[in-house]
Write a protein that binds this DNA or RNA. Structure first.
Length: 462
DNA sequence: TGGCCAGTGCCTTCAAACAC
DNA sequence: GTGTTTGAAGGCACTGGCCA
């Protein structure tokens, strides 16, 4: 897009120059600012009514630019009791507290709690303002106050600067950005879907490889274990204990919550085993006085298992390929030395669905959020194993697949990052007048955009 | 090894303090 | 008196220190 021919200075570096015919206005000149409130939680008939009551959590959970429903609703008497105000459709709902900056356009009349404020259009174009605020999150946060958490006061929001083109131009910018960002959003969604599919594929490939092997024509037999299903006829079903030579565990020591540098000792955090690779950067530096207490050094070619965590994470594993030399285990992680088996085949098995199903059955604990596995139960987990040569082939195939998968995932993540940067840059350029879109027309055959914000939101809703 | 419990981070809720 | 701001209190989901 071409630039405007005549520009003028603004005192705000983050907005920069604006077109000569634009004004640098304030939010209160374009919108009525409405604060929210909360009815008393102890009075039942204030709740479960038919009025949507938006909180910052509702906004941050949205996957789109529009809000229609809240997690909790209030009644008319609840609304009256706390003095909250209903705002009309097309108002912008902005979270102004913990966190500042999540926003969406209201799809219908609704109210908010005190963590949000609504901007009701009074001369400003809702969709244009939505795009402007979406690139102004950093500036909104800079104006927040408070020590426990930041809050943007009503006065700060009222005086928040707004580049204000003529209304018809705000409408054109909104129309242009709707069209262009929709195209970018499609590309971002495709890349995110690809990342999700790659993750699913990794899980499926592992589960298949450790239960069916590489030969699709191999004759199968019933494993006799519900969670393993059918396995190749020549595979053996055994308990993990058949392959465990040694289980070691570390010691709980005082440590600073920063990774150990060269010359320092570190203890692994339980979060080191959350991915499908051991993340040795997830460690804490052992304080000098405690260095003599560390007891179990991380060695190469060992299976690392979390013996205690939430139900989803208990039994999570990692595999140490190298010996970093200065890292030790805490009391929550086991270091398992395997024998008579390709160790990485067993690691692959612990990433499969059948392993997780078995762990789910044996984990226990007084607290539902903190579950343990007993060593004996872990050792009794059933696994199907092919001959050693086939184990090695499966592991090699897995490494080849993982390398390709990692490469594709990295490319897709990079693409998402670049597309998001491009989206922000385009919005920023359009709402601060760096590109002139007045003559832009939607390509023939594309959706036409109606001229007022209310109809615009309905178009999106449809 | 298993469990208790304090700490942490991120939030929501709510009422006292404050400003107008 | 009313509306706004502030921060304490608490919920939730972990995380980790410590001890029987």
């Amino acid at each position: 897009m071409r630039p405007y021919t005549q520009m003028k200075d603004t005192p705000l570096a983050w907005i920069g120059d604006i077109p000569y015919h634009w004004k640098l206005s304030k939010a209160k000149r374009l919108f009525k600012i409405v604060s929210g409130s909360t009815p008393s939680s102890s009075i039942d008939n204030y709740w479960n009514g038919d009025i949507d009551w938006i909180t910052p959590a509702d906004l941050s959970q949205l996957g789109n630019d529009y809000v229609e429903f809240s997690a909790r609703r209030i009644t008319k008497s609840g609304l009256d009791s706390c003095g909250a105000e209903l705002v009309p459709r097309s108002s912008i709902i902005l979270s102004t507290r913990a966190p500042i900056g999540s926003l969406a356009i209201a799809m219908k009349s609704m109210c908010t709690n005190q963590g949000c404020k609504a901007l009701v259009p009074e001369g400003g174009h809702a969709v244009y303002a939505y795009y402007f605020l979406s690139i102004a999150t950093e500036q909104l946060n800079l104006r927040g106050r408070g020590t426990t958490f930041l809050e943007l006061s009503t006065d700060e929001l009222k005086s928040f600067p707004f580049p204000a083109p003529p209304f018809i131009e705000q409408q054109k910018i909104a129309q242009f950005l709707d069209y262009e960002t929709a195209k970018i959003d499609v590309l971002i969604d495709e890349q995110k879907r690809l990342i999700g599919l790659l993750k699913e594929k990794r899980q499926a490939v592992i589960s298949h490889a450790v239960s069916k092997g590489l030969n699709p024509d191999a004759p199968m037999k019933d494993s006799g274990v519900e969670w393993l299903g059918e396995v190749p006829e020549h595979w053996k079903v055994a308990s993990l204990k058949a392959f465990i030579r040694l289980v070691e565990s570390g010691t709980s020591v005082n440590a600073a919550d920063t990774p150990a540098s060269e010359g320092e000792l570190g203890v692994l955090k339980t979060s080191a085993v959350y991915g499908d690779e051991l993340d040795v950067n997830q460690n804490k530096t052992v304080v000098k006085e405690e260095e003599s207490r560390v007891s179990c050094q991380l060695k190469a070619n060992r299976l690392i298992v979390s013996r205690m965590n939430t139900p989803e994470l208990v039994g999570a594993t990692g595999f140490s390929l190298t010996n970093p030399g200065n890292l030790f285990l805490p009391d929550r992680l086991w270091q398992i030395t395997l024998e008579n088996v390709e160790a990485q085949f067993i690691f692959m098995f612990t990433l499969s669905k059948s392993y997780r199903s078995q762990i789910k059955l044996v984990c226990a604990g007084a607290s539902s959020s903190m579950q343990n596995i007993a060593q004996e139960d872990f050792k009794n987990v059933k696994v199907a194993v092919p001959p050693l040569i086939e184990q090695k082939a499966i592991v090699e195939e897995w490494h080849r697949f993982k390398s390709n998968s990692n490469q594709l995932t990295e490319q897709a993540e990079k693409a998402v990052e670049l597309l998001q940067e491009r989206r922000s840059a385009l919005i920023s350029a359009a709402v601060t007048g760096k590109i002139d879109v007045r003559d832009w027309q939607p390509p023939a055959g594309s959706d036409t955009v109606d001229s007022n914000a209310l109809v615009q939101t309905e178009r999106h809703y449809g």
